[in-house]
């Protein structure tokens, strides 16, 4: 068996203890990790061998659960998906920006969860039919219309990247609005009108100025920026139909 190569990794991790600290501070660690390792491996090694008080969230270690998001050298990333070999020198690890720090690298996701709920991220059937009539069917083309937007893993990297969310915390934000779009685009869904009450508002898509950072950092290639721009167009069409076409008011 070939020997796995190892490398010495230096990390600078932002620490915050809500019981004792008023400010966060950086702490330097040095660990030896496998050459093929990811930042999460280094953190786990630190926790196991050096400092059991270090806190961070993770679960799947394969970029599907969305819980290990953090800032790595200033960039929002999944730590289980960020290879150590791509970095030279000290790697700076911080909790996701724009979210309150609960402890060390653990942030409070409550605001995002609340917003996600507000866009009604579930199918609101066009017409209810009894179970005896069978399933709601969908063609592959109808599926493709929203498939990309259904790949979101709720990692909140897009919120950490979005300066509008940082500056205006009321903004519903990229992932939640994209979820609204995902269901609006679904042939089985009839809930668009209800969602528009959240989507087509100042806190909704109109807070977005198309910085595009969300799409650049999204690890699941959801492209939230595209969903938001499309919703701006359809919301504008709604407005024109309502206000400028005689008899268009619903």
């Amino acid at each position: 068996m070939t020997q796995m190569k190892e490398r010495l990794v230096q990390l600078e991790v932002l620490r915050y203890n809500p019981d004792t600290d008023t400010e966060a501070h950086f702490q330097r660690y040095e660990v030896t990790c496998y050459e093929e390792g990811v930042v999460l491996d280094a953190l786990n090694k630190i926790k196991a061998d050096i400092d059991p008080t270090l806190n961070f969230r993770w679960s799947c270690h394969m970029a599907v659960c969305g819980s290990c998001g953090m800032m790595i050298n200033g960039e929002p990333k999944l730590s289980c998906h960020t290879f150590l070999r791509e970095y030279e020198g000290v790697i700076r690890v911080e909790p996701l920006t724009h979210f309150p720090i609960e402890r060390d690298l653990v942030t409070a996701p409550d605001d995002f969860m609340e917003k996600l709920k507000r866009v009604k991220p579930y199918i609101i059937p066009k017409e209810d039919k009894p179970i005896s009539e069978g399933e709601y069917k969908q063609t592959p083309a109808q599926l493709m219309k929203f498939r990309q937007y259904s790949m979101c893993i709720n990692c909140m990297l897009c919120y950490a990247a979005c300066p509008q969310y940082g500056l205006t915390p009321e903004f519903i934000g990229p992932a939640a609005l994209t979820m609204a779009h995902r269901y609006n685009q679904d042939s089985r869904d009839g809930g668009r009108k209800e969602r528009q009450e959240v989507v087509a508002t100042h806190e909704g898509v109109w807070e977005c100025t198309f910085v595009g950072a969300c799409s650049e950092v999204c690890p699941a290639h959801v492209d939230p920026a595209s969903a938001l721009q499309q919703m701006k167009i359809t919301s504008s069409i709604d407005w024109i139909v309502e206000h400028m076409i005689p008899g268009g008011k619903k």
Binding site: Y16, D21, T97, I101, A108, L167
Partner: peptide, 26 residues
Amino acid sequence: MSRRPLVREVPPTSWYFRHPRYLRYM
């Protein structure tokens, strides 16, 4: 004992220096 989550402010006028993609946007 206070257990307050730490809220970090976003600098309202200089945030776009935080990342090259923000400068590109500006």
